[in-house]
Simulated scan of single mutants.
Amino acid sequence: MDKFSYNKPKLKIPKSPLQKALDILASIAFAAGIVHLIAVWGQLPDQVPAHYNGAGEIDRWGSKWELILLPTIAAFLAVFMTFLEKHPEWHNYMNLNEGNIEFQYRNSILLLNVMKNECVLLFVYLNYQTVQVALGQAESLGILFLPIFLAVFFGSMIFFIVRSIKHK
């Protein structure tokens, strides 16, 4: 391996309008999820769904206080992934060279941004749907939840990996 592989340059790459828009959308959804949880807190039973199986059916019940875990995890992931977005020189690349480094950094940053915001939206949806189940307004996540989530999440990864490979 050459020296370039180990000492990747640090480039100042500003957020694109798409990244800013995705961050704003996820932030609004996150805030709305917190407001919703606070608004319905008094109506929630002591026991709420705490885990779902692959078919979206409840397989464990727990304290309503466990609902605080979902936004906490979402916030932690958002902060951590935002930090990683700012350091594309730490990311792992295939075929990185001086001719494609800026594209590869931008691609990697956008991948992280998209996945970060998908994670936040996932946790907001899980919290909302769990509240709906606890209040008797829904029965489960639904059988399509997991396949749709996996298709979106892995679809994003595949899109950005293919994009990276095409720009050797």
Rank of each mutant, 00 (worst) to 15 (best):
A32G: 10
H36T: 15
K10Q: 12
I58V: 15
I34A: 09
Y93W: 13
A26L: 01
D23A: 09
E98T: 12
L70T: 11
A26K: 03
E139H: 08
E57W: 05
D46W: 08
L44N: 08
D23K: 12
Q132C: 07
R106M: 00
P14G: 06
T82R: 09
I101Y: 08
M115A: 05
L44W: 02
F103W: 06
L22I: 06
T130I: 05
Q129H: 13
L122Y: 11
K116L: 05
E57T: 11
A26W: 03
Y93D: 08
F80Y: 14
D59H: 04
L18N: 05
L22T: 04
I58N: 02
T72E: 04
D46H: 11
T130P: 07
P45M: 01
N117L: 04
H91Q: 14
E139G: 11
S63N: 14
N117R: 07
L110F: 03
R106A: 03
D59Y: 05
F30M: 11
N92L: 08
Q129R: 15
Q43Y: 11
I58K: 04
A21V: 10
E102F: 01
I143C: 06
A39C: 02
E85L: 10
M94N: 13
L44E: 09
L77G: 02
Y128Q: 13
E57V: 10
A50D: 00
G33H: 06
F76V: 15
A26I: 08
N127P: 11
G142E: 08
L126V: 06
D46G: 03
I68K: 10
N95F: 09
A50S: 08
N95R: 14
